[in-house]
Each structure stands twice: as structure tokens, then as C-alpha cells.
Design a protein around this nucleic acid. Structure first.
Lengths: 256, 256
DNA sequence: GGATGTTGGTTCATTATTTGAACCGTTATT
DNA sequence: AATAACGGTTCAAATAATGAACCAACATCC
């Protein structure tokens, strides 16, 4: 791995759950030498990608990241556009609604709304979702570029639960069903007891950019709930797609 | 400069005005060789910090940045907290209101609300503001850690206009006035014809984290406007600080 | 109170990565 | 058909990254 990759891996050690880490800890987790880790952190700090707490000397993600993320958002207002609809969907369904964007080979959770229930599906911002074993992933694949689909089906497909589909044919079938139905369903594909529905948010060219999904404990979910949430999530995804593409969303490439 | 620094400088070439750049262009602007530039871009793309347009082959900032920025936001909800108050202030003043966060040695614009006027002060998200020559900068310095103030006054102080204060003593005086008054005023310090007022947003320890500012064309600004905006910007900054610090903002360290 | 372990941070000879001039292939422009 | 501009690649030479061993400071534990 190049030095740049190493620096970025360091950044990726920070999570919502552990937003501040010490030098030794970072070195241990990254597997880099302490001296290397430090040098990388200094370089990152110099550009505002990392900040160091004056008191504890622990490191955390810096403001430079917000700056660049906002520049990206300015050109491509995914969050700005989608968040209000995520909120609406959350209050309509009273279950966890999460929004994700594609990155490299997974979906990245960029926004989450949790219901008031104590028993709910908990998802953190920044959480990475595999493509083959989540409702979001299937919804994404259903409208992804061929290369991405191929790469996903070719790669090793982890079985997270007894219900995870890992045969390429089964996954393709789920994708086809999702296309036909307008939304995808994942029954405990990533975690036992969780059932989700999702729909893809499309670019002007008709390719998936990200997804919106509703996740709920299976115990309190009926078949009627699934259908209702599916239709709602589909409507939300469509609305977001339209707003993103200035209301001139082409006829969906593959849906025709 | 280390490789990491170079990679980050590449990212910093993207702006709101030019969010997509080609390889040759990036190489030219960064001063790096085309091969080097490419290798860095590939490394960045591999981690989702940069994306490449499938059609034009141009590069843009990637979703990985949003992810990390959101993780940072989750721990430190600066934007989430401040944006509503920025909006309120914008509609109350009918002038440009911008929010900035400190990064390394400058302030980074993280949010802007523009008024409907055709003649208005235009500021882009991501724009960097020098500390010594802007209302935001002075407001920040007034409550910054001593090291930062020292570093700023020691460094070369560029005179952007004939009105820019560049003598350390004059800048210190502005800071003292800002502390006393509760807000800072910059009369054409960065650009001719622009007058701004700003107030610092404080951490629980009483140090400045960022600022909120109102910028307007001097031509239509009266002395009364300045006072009114100053009080409004001060109130907004206080409210943001309180919300950020869970309503238990300590007595302001230096204001006492 | 002295031994022990932990932390953040530094040094410098060794080692591996980065560098860039020259290159190729493709796609406009003239 | 010639030219130029673009994205992308190659490989010997130059440079930067590496990590074991090292401090100093703090906390913990007999």
C-alpha cells in the first residue's frame, strides 16, 4: 500500500462510536509502526484532516474534511436533497430510515433517522454496507453499472447469517425482483431479526447513485408492513432522484 | 512535502467554482508531474476520496470525504447546530451570512446563506478567510488560544486593500474592541466596498471554535445597520455556543 | 519510594517508494 | 492528413518512508 493509502486508512479508523483515538491505539489498530503513524498524523494534521486534542493529546477527524465534503455537496447536493425526504419517511414508517451513497465497492451510510422505539434497528453514520447482503445493496445493484455488478458477484460473498444469499444466481434473481417490484427486500441478510426494504436513487443517466432504506425488527413486521414500506421507500427514492436531476429524470434505463 | 501532503494538496485544488478537473489540469495546478498526479489520484480514488467521471474522465471529490465529515459531525455537530441560526440571521438581516470553522491557520467557510439582492456579497463554501483581515478572523482571534494569536501576528500579514490592518498592535486593538463590544467589525479589510460584522462561537472551555458573520456592500450600510447586525450576530453566536455546549457554557474566559 | 508499564514523541541508518522524462494510444481541432 | 491536447504508462534514478531503539512524562502497583 502506498503512503497515501496508509494515511487514509488511519482516517478510516475513526468511527462514530470511537471518534477520538490515541497515538499508540492508532498504531496498533492500523498495524503501522508508531513512528510511521505519528508522521502520517502530523501530515494529516498539517492539512486539517486530523486535529489533536490539546489536553488528552488524542486525535480526531479535522475540519478540513468538512470543508472538502461541503465542496462536494455544493456540486452534488445529495444530502441536502435527500435528508428532508428521509425525515418524512422516518415519521411515516416509525422505523429506522437510512440513506447511503456508493463508494468504491460498498454503500456508505450518510444519514440516519431513528424512531423513538427502544427496540429499533440501530445504524451509525459512516457504517459501510456490503452490496450482496442488504436491501440497500440489492436495490443499488439492480441499477448499477455492469462493471460494478460483475465485480460484486465475482468477489467473495460473505454469509453474515444463515439467510444471507451468496450464490450469484440468487443475488441476480433478487436484483431482477427488485427492478420489477420497484424496491428490494432483505430478510435478515446482514443481521438476524432485521428486515429491510430499499430503493435506489438514480442519476440522470439512470444509474444508481445511492439508496434509501427502511430497517425494522422482524418481530413486529407484517407482510402488509413490508409492502407499505416498500411503496413508501420507492416513492421517496423517486422523488429524491427527480429533485437531484432537475425533474428531467430520463425514462429508467432498465425498468422499461 | 511528504506524499500525504501532496495528495491532500490535490484535493484542495477542487473548489465550488471548479468542482471537476482533468488530469493534465490537476498536474499543472499542483505543479506535480503528470505521472505523480495520476498515481496520487489513483490512491485517492481507491479510498473514495476522489471519483472519476466515467464519461469525461475528469476527477471530482468523492463520497469517502462525506463519510468522514459526517463522522466528525456526529461527534461535533457544528453544522447541524449552527445552520438553523445562520438561516434565521440571514432572513433577519437580508444580507449574506456565513459560518466558519477554524482549520490550521485560517477560517474555513462551512455554510453560507445569500440574500435575494442582486448586489450582495458573494461567498463560496470552502472559501478560506485570513485571520487578520476579516471580521470573522478578528472575532476568532479575540477568543483564540494564545499560540494561535501569536502565530498569526508573527506571520506575514498581507494587505488586501488600503484599509487592511497589518500592524500587530492595530490588530490587537481590534481584538480588544471585539471582546468588549461582543462582536468585531471589518471595514473593507479583505475587499473594497464590503463591510462585515462577526462574533465567535465558543467551546465549553471558552475558546473560539469558529465564527458567524454578516457581510454586506458598504454602499447600503448605515452605522445603525452595523450596530443592529452586530447585536444580532452576537446573539446568534451565543445561542450556537450554548447549544453546542449543552447549555452549560462556562463564563466566558476572557470576557469577564 | 522505587520498580514497572503505559503513554506520546524522536532519531537515523536501512530500505522501499516516489519521481519524471519520454513514451503510447485516443480524441478533437485545423 | 497533420497537429495538438488529452489521459494514461514505463523504468532507472533519486528521494522519501520505515522501524527498532530510544527519551521523557505520567500512572500504577507492590
Amino acid at each position: 500500500m502506498g503512503t497515501v493509502g496508509k494515511a487514509i486508512s488511519l482516517l478510516e479508523l475513526f468511527t462514530v462510536a470511537e471518534p477520538e483515538l490515541g497515538l499508540t491505539d492508532l498504531a496498533r489498530r492500523s498495524g503501522f509502526d508508531k513512528a510511521t503513524t505519528r508522521r502520517l498524523l502530523v501530515a494529516l494534521t498539517g492539512h486539517g484532516f486530523v486535529e489533536q486534542d490539546a489536553g488528552t493529546r488524542h486525535y480526531r477527524l479535522g475540519a478540513g474534511l468538512s470543508r472538502l465534503a461541503r465542496i462536494r455537496e455544493a456540486r452534488f447536493p445529495f444530502l441536502q436533497t435527500a435528508v428532508p425526504l428521509v425525515r418524512d419517511l422516518a415519521s411515516a414508517t416509525a422505523e429506522t430510515v437510512h440513506l447511503s451513497e456508493f463508494g468504491i465497492d460498498r454503500l456508505v451510510t450518510v444519514h440516519v433517522e431513528h424512531p423513538a422505539w427502544a427496540n429499533r434497528v440501530n445504524i451509525d453514520i459512516g457504517q459501510l454496507l456490503p452490496l450482496h447482503s442488504t436491501a440497500s445493496g440489492i436495490a443499488y445493484l439492480a441499477f448499477a453499472r455492469d462493471e460494478i455488478v460483475k465485480a460484486c458477484l465475482a468477489g467473495p460473498l460473505e454469509a453474515f447469517t444463515a439467510h444471507t444469499l451468496i450464490e450469484p444466481a440468487a443475488i441476480s434473481r433478487s436484483m431482477a425482483e427488485a427492478r420489477e417490484r420497484g424496491y428490494s427486500i432483505s430478510d435478515q441478510g446482514l443481521e438476524e431479526g432485521v428486515i429491510s426494504v430499499a430503493a435506489a436513487i438514480l442519476s440522470a443517466e439512470g444509474f444508481a447513485l445511492g439508496t434509501i432504506a427502511v430497517a425494522a425488527p422482524k418481530a413486529r413486521t407484517t407482510t402488509a408492513d413490508i409492502t407499505q414500506r416498500g411503496l413508501a421507500v420507492m416513492a421517496a427514492a423517486r422523488e429524491i432522484s427527480m429533485r437531484l436531476n432537475g425533474d428531467n429524470l430520463q425514462t429508467l434505463r432498465r425498468q422499461a
